[in-house]
Write a protein that binds this DNA or RNA. Structure first.
Lengths: 340, 340
DNA sequence: CTGTTAGCGCTTTCAG
DNA sequence: CTGAAAGCGCTAACAG
């Protein structure tokens, strides 16, 4: 039913077509229908359909200062955790007419800063971010420009912002205790660089605490590794396996899903059987885990829920909620399989 | 160094602050620096820094009709294939100053339509889409409004649009032949509903062709399943396993990564050993596959590259390339492991 | 080299 | 109930 038009119809054309002023069309668009005479409503509706008109978000936005855009800034969208979160965010965005701009930072503060500026230029109304923690100044700028920010997963000390996290300490304690209960006397924590990243710090500290408590004599073994450096990781795994002679069963706790994948890869290469030669468990659950080896025991974070909750917080803020920033802590869940 | 400002600085404020007209600031922003006296350049630069000014994409966009926004519309971003593609798209977007709006359709034509309208309202300049094929009219509208569209993975008959695909037929033939070569006499294809989705059609037809050729007596066995319906899938797998009595080795070809995951899950539940009881291979490669069972043989699509190429096409179009729409076919690669 | 002016598509008083 | 007019932040002639 649509005519071949060369470019978008504007409100003016609709107005002309319908024989009314653009104010009236604007009213129509904005739902103030019962303030318009029925006859005009009909002709406007008709005109809109015939011209296949859609109001321009840009023009609307420029006028009312609302872009209907939400930024989603993560280290790496390739990470299943991030994708699941994104879906959660999207779910509530759809309900409220927002669209999502996704950006990756690759954990680089510079790239993060750049992306933040880009998002800012687009007048995003909200931002959900898994931050490097190195761009607090830009974040503050955004705040002062009225964009609502919610931190997911990673909190930033000194930044009083809404945040959605999981009970990292608890769940880490749980799993480390489980390891000791199962007779693993050497448990090593493999993690990406800890400093400044709150969940890593929380997990490392919980690990250390339990390790100290349960195995008084032994120094907790934390391996800070670079997921990207396969060779180095292999070395670390080997060195852990060789540590402490042959006494005692060994288990690895992996700090995130991607790292787990790489570690398990190393184990395969080395030819270490799970759980006979090493036990393993770690954060982030995916459907694959049950299919690998004996099934990998994991800590499932409610990532989809986290995204949802984060975005809901933003919606609230955008609706005018001015209450003090809050940290919403969701519960991660232990998924017991047979790798321990 | 930034003052506490309550909202974004505008070009007017910068102009005032620098003691020049906003045209000059505009010139500065747009890089026409050597058309401005050095003194003013300095003061503008200073003003911009002090006010922490970023030009509004919305205002710029409204004026020049360029949003710098690219839509990325996929069935499900949760699918590893989609994420990898997204990263490819992003890579070239970054290089050219574009931002990406991601939307999921869940394979629903209605949702796709809705998303398309939403993206349209945001004046996206380009669209990369994995389409349901049911909204060609909207796609045509977009075209007529000068948005550059590239289809990824799925072509649409009758729509002359740029497309980026893989050599589905070839690679399917290859793997099916390999199956027969390895002595599997019953090979079944598991796929989501085929009709209207080009890669599925191509794969199914290549499969059928080879199956007919290599195993004259037997009717090709195609199972069209719903990935979401676990129970039904389990039934299909069982029925395939039970088919044709006990004569001959059986192998499953899975049409995409997600489906493969579900099928392998079923196999585990049934207790069928890979490859002793059933061989299996399928599309889409992820790092997990090497860790599952004996290592799963897959067809790796160059998804990252596909995203890159698709976005490069868009950039070309946006730069004015008016040549006839082309289909760029990339090569998928067989990754041999031990599930066959 | 630089300021003035008009206007992108829309919303929002303000009269009527 | 409805239209005229002003203006959101920016760019693009057009004079000077």
């Amino acid at each position: 039913m649509k005519d071949k038009q060369t470019s978008k119809a504007t409100i003016n054309e609709v107005a002309a077509h319908a024989g009314v002023s653009k104010s009236t069309v604007s009213r129509y668009i904005n739902g103030k229908i019962d303030a318009i005479s029925p006859g005009k409503v009909k002709s406007i509706k008709k005109a809109i359909e015939e011209l296949n008109y859609r109001p321009s978000q840009m023009a609307q936005g420029l006028k009312v200062k609302k872009s209907k855009l939400i930024g989603f800034l993560v280290a790496d969208i390739t990470n299943p955790f991030s994708v699941a979160t994104l879906r959660g965010v999207e779910e509530v965005c759809d309900q409220h007419g927002y669209s999502i701009m996704v950006c990756n930072t690759d954990n680089s503060p510079e790239k993060e800063r750049e992306m933040l500026h880009k998002l800012n230029a687009h007048y995003i109304e909200g931002l959900i971010i898994n931050t490097t923690g190195q761009n607090n100044d830009v974040l503050m700028d955004l705040i002062s420009q009225d964009v609502s920010i919610v931190l997911v997963d990673r909190k930033v000390p000194g930044l009083k912002l809404d945040a959605v996290t999981t009970n990292n300490r608890e769940v880490t304690s749980q799993i480390v205790n489980l390891m000791y209960d199962k007779g693993y006397s050497h448990v090593g924590l493999f993690t990406e660089p800890i400093t400044g990243i709150s969940p890593r710090e929380e997990r490392a500290s919980a690990y250390t605490e339990i390790a100290l408590e349960r195995n008084a004599g032994r120094i907790p073994q934390i391996y800070e590794v670079d997921v990207k450096d396969k060779a180095a990781l292999l070395q670390s795994v080997k060195s852990f396996l060789a540590s402490g002679g042959d006494r005692g069963k060994k288990a690895i706790l992996g700090n995130n899903g991607l790292l787990m994948l790489k570690i398990i890869s190393c184990l395969y290469e080395i030819g270490a059987a799970i759980p006979e030669d090493v036990g393993i468990a770690g954060f982030d659950d995916t459907e694959w885990y049950r299919l690998i080896g004996p099934g990998i025991t994991t800590i499932a974070q409610p990532s989809h829920e986290m995204g949802k909750v984060a975005m809901e917080r933003i919606v609230k803020r955008l609706e005018g909620d001015e209450s003090a920033p809050q940290t919403i802590q969701l519960e991660a869940e232990l998924v017991l399989r047979h790798s321990l």
